[in-house]
């Protein structure tokens, strides 16, 4: 049996105490560093989300400070209004149309372009900047360009002559939403190309060499090496494209004049703005917002399952 001298025991206790103090200091330092972000998340996400859910089950409108306004509990009444409003249904159909066009197109074009820009081609830096430029340009400015291109008297209609659609692209009930989907795809392509370019740096060159030795051509290499190699990035691109797409606002508002003919390009967020801000129904807008969050979550989860299948 070993006996520790009091001095030795005291030394171990003191070392243990010092370690504990050090741990506490480290832990406090960690708290200090994360606290601004925690406060930020609480202030701009968690609290507003909880408040939104609360508003959605009450009859509510915004009032001046210090004035009394009843906000009675109405249960799911606002949700019933949301689900029975035909414009809401149209907005969600529009978003589905948008996502069906935008998401696959974004994934395909950005991966193909990233692969091309990853190869040693002339003017590579120029092309990288050229694809990124629309992403960092304000939507308002780009919308003007698209109106010039696709307006009734626009460049495209002049080129098409008698084949130009009537009504024209941006005011055509059948073409307005696809046009917005193409516009957003083009505008955001630079960002997704950049994501794929970063992902491509992690695909080992030896894989391409091995594939080449096995007789795989460029296209075979693309499908057998590049596509599986950037799968985590594809999941990110798909989910990010779904989230930003479902939150579409500026483009239908600016490009098609407040939702297009007969709500042909109205989006749920544009509708939330119209109902909540313009028409003073924040309770309806809050319920619609909660439905939209659930919709995006479900689609994002499904997309994740789909893109990660087989990994």
């Amino acid at each position: 049996m070993t006996h520790l001298s009091p001095a030795a025991d005291g030394g171990r206790t003191s070392r243990r105490g010092a370690a504990a103090r050090h741990g506490r200091i480290r832990s406090l330092t960690g708290v200090l560093f994360v606290s601004p972000y925690v406060l930020f998340v609480l202030a701009v996400f968690a609290v507003p989300l909880v408040y939104t859910v609360w508003i959605s089950v009450h009859r509510f409108y915004f009032t001046a400070p210090g004035t009394h306004a009843d906000s009675p509990w109405v249960g799911l009444s606002n949700y019933r209004d949301v689900f029975t409003d035909p414009v809401v249904g149209r907005a969600f159909v529009n978003i589905v149309v948008f996502l069906v066009i935008n998401v696959p197109l974004t994934v395909i074009l950005s991966l193909v372009l990233a692969s091309a820009l990853n190869a040693k081609i002339r003017f590579r830096s120029f092309f990288r900047a050229a694809y990124y430029l629309p992403y960092i340009t304000a939507s308002v400015a780009l919308v003007a360009v698209w109106q010039f291109l696709f307006g009734t008297d626009g460049f495209v209609n002049h080129a098409l002559g008698p084949l130009a659609p009537d009504p024209s692209w941006l005011v055509n009930a059948h073409l307005a939403m696809p046009m917005i989907a193409f516009f957003v795809t083009w505008k955001q392509l630079g960002f997704f190309v950049m994501l794929y370019l970063a992902a491509l740096q992690n695909v080992g060159k030896e894989l391409y060499e091995a594939a080449a030795v096995d007789g795989a051509g460029r296209i075979r290499q693309f499908f057998s090496v590049t596509v599986p190699g950037v799968r985590p990035a594809t999941t990110l691109v798909v989910i990010y494209a779904i989230i930003t797409g479902a939150n579409l606002f500026s483009e239908p508002y600016l490009l098609t004049g407040g939702g297009g003919p007969d709500h042909a390009s109205v989006s749920p967020v544009l509708l939330m703005y119209q109902k909540g801000i313009e028409q003073g129904h924040p309770d309806f807008a809050a319920a619609l917002g909660v439905v939209l969050v659930c919709f995006v979550l479900l689609i994002s989860l499904a997309a994740r399952k789909l893109t990660e299948r087989g990994t």
């Binding site: 009930a173 003919p261 007969d262 709500h263 119209q274 313009e278 028409q279 003073g280």
Partner: peptide, 17 residues
């Protein structure tokens, strides 16, 4: 505002298009 929006929706659908 609700009233004017309802009117405008009907207007664009029928009169404009």
């Amino acid at each position: 505002i609700d009233i004017w929006q309802a009117f405008r929706d009907a207007w664009t659908k029928s009169v404009v298009f």
